[in-house]
Design a protein around this nucleic acid. Structure first.
Lengths: 413, 413
DNA sequence: AGACTTTTTTCGAGCCTCGAAAAAAAGAAT
DNA sequence: ATTCTTTTTTTCGAGGCTCGAAAAAAGTCT
């Protein structure tokens, strides 16, 4: 913050800008890059020819015969897919999916596994995860650029350094430093990220018009997760991954939550809570371990057909979400909201109660401005967000610095 | 974000770094500046002699005969007090205080006024405010550097551009664009800021050890305000000044709040709410307009002496604060908290219930890590925060750019 | 084929920061 | 008093970076 800018930082930052401009655009001519970065054509020319020389970027050969304008045609520049690759690991309830993604963002290899995460002993969970990654990387080391980064996304709380899984609902084990474990096994830098934060990244890259600098993504599932972008950055807490929207207090000393506390939003809006209410059980009935997506779909169908305890259960869930969103908005102001995950398929049942509750809050002043979108399938979003995170890291911290000699591996795409 | 760094930005930024380093340190030698900015001695030498030549900084002549070490003595550089000045206006309930502060941060002139803000018509409130500022600036135009910025702090909600007072509890009027009004009357750029945000800035400059990059300040008064620093920046909402902690929902459909809604934190912890509960009135009793500080002090005394409705009222206030802090911390993680304002004199009555409630929340996981401090007198903090805000703006946007020719006005301090 | 248009590269100028060396300004030693 | 030592500050040349203008390149249009 009080640190000055050195002369050599300049080039590094501008190189990063060029790479990021190309990544965002998919492909872009030098002129377009100059426009988006506000740098001069000469600078862009110098930087891009450096980056092409280093094998980070590549000129697109087969000019897409699109409507030819007059004048010298622009030559598009794209990311060189074989400049590097990253390994994305999504660990969720009973499932492990590992993917190798090339530098341009395309999946080139995948390995998936079903495994009983809730009942596995610690060593086996670790062993399976690390083993799958090692196998995948070995198998595909030839196909794409070298894997330069591993990123693991998981439901739960990670430390603020993105190295340790502090707590997760998918396993009774806690404080697993997956980053260290993966790095030791592979020699490749690794990080651990919260799944909802990755969802937020993916949403932004999907629809930058809607999800720009400030928005939130809420994962409706067995529990309630949240990823939040503030001021253009994924927000993480100072101690942990933060964003524990599901454990804001909806009703002090209220319904029993999976976390052992009372009155959390999740204790009204999580799958287990909806089920508990629909079955007319007391609020302090211990949460069941897991509720299938099918069960919730069935409840939602019942609720749509006729009034009754099912509809009331969804109403309570919406009310909890609405009041808590209202509190969040009072603190941080309105922003677009994405409802993600299987639970969002019942959003038609939730929206009314949500809007009703939010209108009763200070955050609801602008309630017309609050718009919701739904994204039922979270897994692809998580994977995509991870890829963006890891690749952007390479852009900014590896290739922008120009420390890597890519040698002969040029323009294999 | 995607914008590259131009060559001329470099100097501007590094100049800003030097100025800020001097402002933070009060006074510093070139060597010390080089150390804190991580720039080379040659660069610092060049920049600082420029800035001294421009009259922004000044060498301190009377070397303070402190323990003389061996070697060439360091020559301290400080801000030149007469480089510029700013006008700070604090508008609060029934009171208006305007101050001219020199570039080094010292008050050089002040004018204060009592006025019935709650009952004044719009034009008179505006007239008095603008008039006081104009008078003060005219009267003291000779004494210090020219007033280059006006900053007005007020309880309430401002727009995100810091130009308009959208709503305030101190007046029934709303949507007053003080920035335009002040600029038209004086020709000097003006901004409008939320009082609690300014408090946060002042706290950081007072105790940078404790209040560093992430903390919150809660103003306990007739209403409940909050200023929050996240990632080293004062956090403001995307639409408004944000940080409406007092209007997070503590109990859905609960006690009647001054804002007309139900169940807000303020409806339990604001002065009027404590009074209402202490008097055993129903929760939907309309809030009284204003409660004197003395009344609350008397209630607190009673509560300290013996159990009864007064103590219970403070307990409810603490409970509301605790649960809501817990929710806030669940979202944004623990951080030091400052309880500011007259209400913090009763913090001894609040702390127990606050900690009890917070321990029941997810944000309270680290509840031992949550530390509270109290600052009973908010007005000086507001003033100081404003001065810092306005002066820092000059540092970064006026003097760093070197656009101002200070001419003969050199080193008058 | 030549004119025109647009993109890209080249080239020199002007800044900026840096490291090393020199100069300056004291106290300490003789 | 004069000469070392030590530390701070300035000076100076080297190396980079970005920029604007001009030149070169690579097409379409007539």
């Amino acid at each position: 913050m009080t640190v000055g800018i050195r002369h050599d930082d300049l080039r590094r930052r501008n190189r990063a800008m060029v790479i990021l401009a190309v990544r965002h655009a998919g492909q872009a001519s030098r002129t377009e890059i100059a426009a988006t970065t506000a740098l001069s054509h000469s600078t862009i020319s110098a930087i891009s020819s450096d980056l092409i020389g280093e094998g980070v970027l590549a000129e697109v050969k087969g000019g897409e015969g699109g409507a030819m304008k007059r004048g010298r045609p622009q030559v598009a520049i794209s990311l060189n897919p074989s400049a590097a690759s990253v390994c994305v690991v999504v660990l969720s309830l009973n499932s492990l999916i590992a993917t190798v993604v090339d530098y341009a963002g395309c999946s080139v290899a995948e390995e998936s596994l079903r495994l009983p995460t809730l009942s596995m002993p610690r060593d086996e969970l670790i062993g399976q995860t690390v083993g799958t990654v090692v196998r995948l990387i070995e198998k595909h080391s030839a196909k794409a650029g070298p894997v330069m980064r591993i990123i693991l996304a998981i439901q739960g709380i990670t430390d603020s350094e993105s190295r340790t899984l502090m707590w997760s609902p998918i396993t009774p084990e806690s404080d697993i430093c997956f980053a260290d474990l993966l790095e030791q096994a592979t020699g490749i830098p690794a990080t651990v990220e919260n799944d909802c934060n990755m969802i937020a990244l993916a949403l932004r890259s999907h629809d930058p018009e809607r999800y720009r600098n400030d928005f939130i993504a809420i994962l409706l599932s067995h529990g309630i997760g949240m990823g939040m972008v503030l001021r253009g950055e994924v927000f993480t807490g100072t101690q942990s991954s933060g964003g524990e929207f599901g454990h804001m207090i909806h009703r002090p000393d209220g319904a029993l939550c999976r976390c052992g506390r009372r009155g959390c939003v999740e204790a009204y809006a999580g799958n287990y809570a909806i089920l508990r209410n629909a079955e007319g059980l007391a609020e302090d009935t211990p949460p069941v371990a897991d509720v299938g997506d099918g069960d919730i779909a069935a409840l939602a169908d019942k609720a749509r057909r006729s009034p009754g305890p099912e509809r009331e259960a969804f109403r309570k869930a919406g009310e909890a979400l609405g009041f808590s969103l209202g509190s969040l908005f009072a603190l941080l102001d309105p922003a677009p909201v994405a409802m993600v995950g299987h639970g969002s398929l019942a959003f038609d049942l939730l929206e009314g109660p949500i809007r009703e509750a939010i209108a009763k809050t200070a955050g609801g002043q602008h309630s017309k401005a609050i718009s919701f979108a739904t994204e039922p399938n979270e897994i692809p979003l998580i994977r995509e967000g991870c890829a963006i995170r890891a690749l952007t890291f390479l852009d900014e911290h590896v290739f922008a610095a120009g420390m890597v000699n890519l040698g002969a591996r040029k323009n294999a795409g």
